[in-house]
């Protein structure tokens, strides 16, 4: 069962701010889903390989050929937060 503290930790890992008031409600809803997920414990998966890809293909590559880039203006078109051709964000720490 996921605790209130774990909810807050996972919230931090996922960069979703969760205040102390919300974490109880989250814990309750997440636990009902996790409880349901727990039924997988019944399945015997001894010796079963995981399926990461359904299509059984390997070695898909492209040639090392330049196909072009976007103009700076277009790159920055979706934000107001920019300066001298750069994206701009608050300080890191």
């Amino acid at each position: 069962m996921i605790t209130k503290e774990e909810v807050e930790h996972v919230g931090w890992l996922a960069r979703i701010e969760i205040d102390a008031k919300e974490s109880d409600a989250y814990a309750e809803k997440l636990n009902s889903v996790l409880g349901y997920f727990g039924q997988l414990d019944e399945v015997d998966t001894e010796g079963v390989e995981p399926t990461y890809h359904v299509a059984d293909i390997v070695n898909v590559f492209r040639k090392d050929e330049v196909t072009g880039s976007m103009p700076q203006e277009e790159v920055l078109a979706n934000t107001e937060h920019k300066q001298e051709g750069n994206f701009k964000s608050p300080k890191i720490m």
């Binding site: 996921i2 919230g11 979703i16 399926t51």
Partner: peptide, 24 residues
């Protein structure tokens, strides 16, 4: 949040890896 939890240290095998085996 659930996905982050299912991949996180200590739960990866119980949830994520298990789910992929069941997928098989």
């Amino acid at each position: 949040l659930l996905g982050t939890y299912a991949l996180s240290a200590g739960y990866h095998d119980k949830y994520y890896l298990k789910a992929l085996k069941v997928r098989t």
